[in-house]
Simulated assay, not measured.
Amino acid sequence: MPNPHITKIADRLYLGDGKSSRDAQILSENKITAVVSLSGGRWIHWSQPWYKKIIVEGNHLFIKCEDSMTQDLLPELAAICAFIKRHLASGSVLVHCDQGISRSVTAMIAYLMQTYQYDVATALALVGGKRKVKPNDNFKEQLEVWKAVGGNVWTAPGVPKKEYAAFLTKRTKRLKEAGLTGNESVGVTSL
């Protein structure tokens, strides 16, 4: 049986697929006021007038990323967690990716780990108990690093903690094997 388009994970905190972020009825029924989107590209509906009435300017965080074995989400997780925390104070938040099983699950687990001091297994079990999830092995490895660095991958701006540096070394090897450089365009933007 497939996942529903949207699943409540905690009070005012939802996990979903692509449809959950582009369906006015789903957004309205669940009182979603802020959205975190983890996707390979922007979706046209995010710029539509009906959407901007529901998700106002500054309440949409877009993380350009792929569900791949070379994608590095670690530098983005602190911004995602801060965005979720800030917007939960005044409304409901949806975290989504295309299918709602890997990228968005990774971000949700990182938030739960940081907020409730869960380990990866506990947070994964909590989310997996409510929805079918399958973060890829690369993202699971990053969540272990996230736990090890206490939610901060840097010792100073641009200087990775040793656990993150070790992950980056492994990632460099994977990139080389995939014929990539790691300089492919990925980043955080607020809509």
Rank of each mutant, 00 (worst) to 15 (best):
M1Y: 15
I6M: 03
T7M: 11
K8T: 09
I9M: 04
A10G: 04
Y14H: 05
K19Q: 10
K19Y: 10
S20T: 01
S20F: 00
S21D: 00
R22Q: 15
D23V: 03
A24K: 10
Q25L: 12
Q25Y: 14
S28F: 06
E29A: 11
N30V: 04
I32L: 00
I32G: 00
I32R: 00
T33R: 05
L38D: 01
S39G: 10
S39N: 13
G40C: 11
I44A: 10
S47K: 14
Y51I: 08
K53C: 08
H60D: 03
L61W: 00
L61V: 01
I63T: 02
I63A: 02
I63E: 01
K64S: 07
K64W: 05
S68C: 11
T70V: 11
Q71A: 15
L74N: 03
P75R: 10
E76I: 11
C81H: 00
K85F: 14
R86G: 13
H87L: 06
S90H: 10
S90Q: 12
S90M: 05
S92D: 02
V95D: 02
V95K: 02
C97A: 09
D98H: 13
S102Q: 09
S104T: 02
S104I: 01
V105R: 01
M108I: 04
I109P: 00
M113T: 07
T115S: 11
T115C: 10
T115K: 12
V120S: 04
V120E: 06
A121F: 11
A121S: 10
L124E: 09
L124R: 08
L124Q: 08
A125F: 09
L126K: 11
L126I: 06
V127C: 01
V133K: 01
K134C: 15
F139M: 12
K140D: 08
E141F: 12
E144M: 14
K147R: 09
V149Q: 05
G150H: 12
T155Q: 15
P160Q: 02
E163Y: 11
E163D: 13
E163C: 07
Y164M: 03
K173C: 10
R174N: 07
E177P: 07
A178F: 08
L180T: 10
L180K: 14
G187M: 04
T189W: 14
S190L: 14
